[in-house]
Simulated scan of single mutants.
Amino acid sequence: MTTPNELRLLPWSGSGDKPCYLSTDDPDGYMSRLADSIEAIQLGTASELLEEASEALDSQGTSLDDMRCLVKELTGALRDVYRVAASRGHLLTTSDPREPTY
């Protein structure tokens, strides 16, 4: 089992929008693979929304309602990407990235 400072922040929230953590030493376990898959989906969605936002900003015909909807979706995607970055950043701090791994 991992120690408390090695818990993995999962890419979803629990009740009351509280963070969920995974305690395992098996990166190939079911929950680890599920979290990896959901993170990949979240990052892909953010990438698609970024492209959509760029197109909407370049278009003179984008309505205010469309922009509001897009901003709402971008806010959710940014929240997801931030959670992924925080989780991966925490994983990096558990080992010194400057030390070579052989």
Rank of each mutant, 00 (worst) to 15 (best):
P19N: 04
T94F: 03
P11S: 13
M67S: 15
L92T: 12
A46V: 06
I41P: 06
G61I: 09
S13P: 07
H90Y: 13
W12R: 02
L78R: 09
D65Q: 11
D17K: 09
D96Y: 10
L7N: 04
S54N: 10
L10Q: 05
T3H: 12
Y30T: 10
D26G: 10
G61W: 06
I38G: 02
D58Y: 03
A40M: 10
T93N: 10
K18V: 08
M1N: 06
L92V: 09
D80V: 07
L9Q: 00
D26F: 03
V71T: 13
E6W: 02
L9T: 00
V81P: 01
G44S: 14
L22V: 06
P4Q: 02
S23W: 11
C69N: 12
Y82C: 15
D25M: 09
P27D: 15
D36S: 08
Y21Q: 14
S15R: 15
L43V: 05
T101I: 11
T3L: 07
G29Y: 05
T101Q: 15
D17H: 07
E6V: 09
L92G: 05
A56R: 00
L10G: 01
D66W: 05
L74D: 00
D65C: 07
I38Y: 02
S59G: 12
V81E: 00
T3P: 04
E52S: 13
C69S: 08
L22H: 03
L7Q: 14
S87M: 01
L57W: 15
K72V: 12
L9P: 00
L92I: 15
G61E: 08
M31V: 09
L92N: 09
I41K: 11
N5D: 10
E99C: 11
E51M: 12
D58N: 08
T101K: 06
V84H: 07
A86G: 14
G14T: 07
E52I: 08
P19V: 03
S47I: 13
G14I: 06
L43W: 01
I38M: 03
G61D: 08
D36N: 11
Q42T: 06
T2G: 04
L9Y: 00
P11V: 02
